[in-house]
């Protein structure tokens, strides 16, 4: 089967706004052409619930904001050859990390859910039903090795197209003159 020889590509979202994935969709019809050259094996737009083994390229959007994000990121890293930090939140924390200067997440949570900790999602006994926040939001690099940084909030569609086309073709990337933050 020909699809077995195509690179296996995954897209993942952690703590972010999904704007980077929307910018990926802004490839518009180019997406259909790209899809012919790769094998998309995992993405929020698909019904595959488990991150698969042996992924060649993973685009990871968002920062690590809670324990689920951290667990998934480590799993992605262990199963992926080329991991791309996809967008400013993944690259540097960005807006998702704006809560860090406030310190411990408790005052941030209390602002929304009140001070009775038995009623705050993710805290104490409530940690089983939703993932607890991590004390500090991390960019991907703080937890795992990153192979490429694709900055932008979100990265422009043309840049995403360039990066994916090169990686899918098995080339190494030179983003020096192309990528800008913001």
């Amino acid at each position: 089967m020909e699809s077995l020889t195509r690179p296996r590509v995954a897209t993942v979202w952690l703590g972010g706004c999904s704007g980077c994935h929307m910018s990926l969709l802004d490839l518009d019809e180019r997406l259909l052409d790209l899809a012919e050259r790769m094998h998309l094996v995992y993405s929020p737009f698909m019904d595959i619930k488990q991150f698969p083994e042996h992924v060649d390229i993973a685009l990871v959007e968002g920062a690590v904001a809670n324990e689920d994000n951290a667990r998934l990121l480590r799993l992605v890293r262990s199963r992926t050859a080329v991991l791309v930090a996809f967008g400013d939140c993944a690259v540097a924390g960005n807006v998702t990390a704006l809560r860090n200067p406030l310190g411990d997440p408790m005052p941030v949570l209390a602002r929304s859910y009140g001070t009775d900790t038995s009623r705050i999602p993710g805290v104490g006994a409530n940690a089983g039903s939703v993932p607890p926040l991590v004390p500090k939001v991390h960019m991907l690099r703080s937890l795992v090795a990153v192979d490429y940084y694709l900055p932008g909030c979100p990265p422009p569609a043309d840049l995403i197209f360039f990066v994916l086309s090169e990686l899918v073709a098995g080339r190494t990337l030179n983003l020096q003159s192309r990528a800008t933050l913001g």
Partner: peptide, 30 residues
């Protein structure tokens, strides 16, 4: 169960209201 939380209400406090259109639009990329 909704599993994510980002805390805009807390970290926007102390910032100028003119910054809000740019910061709060990052709540959602859709």
């Amino acid at each position: 169960h909704v599993l994510e939380f980002r805390g805009f209400e807390a970290f926007c406090e102390g910032r100028h209201f003119q910054e809000m259109p740019a910061i709060t639009s990052r709540i959602c990329g859709i």
